[in-house]
Computed example of a mutant assay.
Amino acid sequence: MAVYVDDAIWNFAGRKWCHLMADSEEELHRFAARLGVHRSSYQGPPKTAAPHYDITGFERDRAIRMGALAVSRAEILAVYRGVRRPGEKQRRQLV
């Protein structure tokens, strides 16, 4: 199991933001709590397609120091879709 953060690329409220995701929702919530991100910041179904937290660039740096994997925008989209982990070839066949 892993936790991922993409590049902090979009601006909002004077800060740069990115996504925090994990291989499971449980892991995502545990990591976010350790990071100090409030559960009220969680975004997931049915509101959004993929469970995630939007975090600041500052929180991203802390998350990486805590063990989250820094991934590209393309890699985090693959995690969103559940098709493959970053750096892996497709791990399951889509029917």
Rank of each mutant, 00 (worst) to 15 (best):
K47M: 10
K16V: 02
F58T: 15
I64D: 08
M1I: 01
H52A: 04
I9V: 14
R85I: 04
R65S: 14
N11L: 12
R91N: 02
W17T: 04
T48I: 08
I64K: 11
I64V: 15
P86E: 09
S41M: 14
K16Q: 13
K16H: 10
T56K: 09
R65P: 00
T56C: 12
R91W: 09
D23F: 03
L94V: 13
P45S: 10
A49L: 14
G44S: 11
L69P: 00
S24V: 03
G67M: 06
R39T: 09
E75Q: 14
M1T: 09
K16M: 11
Q93D: 09
G87P: 05
S72I: 04
F31R: 01
P51G: 12
C18M: 03
L35N: 05
G36T: 11
R15Q: 15
Y4H: 02
G44D: 08
H38Y: 06
T48Y: 06
R15C: 06
A68K: 02
G14T: 03
T48S: 07
R81I: 03
G57F: 03
Q93L: 12
L94D: 04
I64E: 14
T56V: 10
V71Q: 03
A78Y: 05
L28I: 06
R60A: 07
L28E: 01
S41T: 06
E26K: 14
V79C: 01
T56D: 10
G67E: 04
S40M: 13
H19V: 03
P51E: 10
A78E: 11
Y42A: 12
S24M: 07
D7G: 05
G14R: 04
R60S: 05
D6T: 01
E59F: 03
V5H: 01
Y53C: 07
I9A: 08
P51L: 10
R81Y: 10
R85Y: 04
A8T: 05
Y4F: 15
R65M: 10
P86H: 09
R73Q: 13
V83K: 11
G44M: 09
G44Q: 08
F31H: 03
F31V: 04
A13K: 14
M66Y: 07
S24Y: 07
R81S: 13
P51D: 10
R62Y: 00
A2F: 03
L94H: 05
D61L: 13
Y42T: 06
S24L: 05
A13E: 15
R81V: 03
A2M: 03
R91C: 00
K47I: 13
V3N: 01
Y42K: 11
A68F: 02
A63G: 06
H19I: 04
A50D: 11
Y4G: 01
R85E: 09
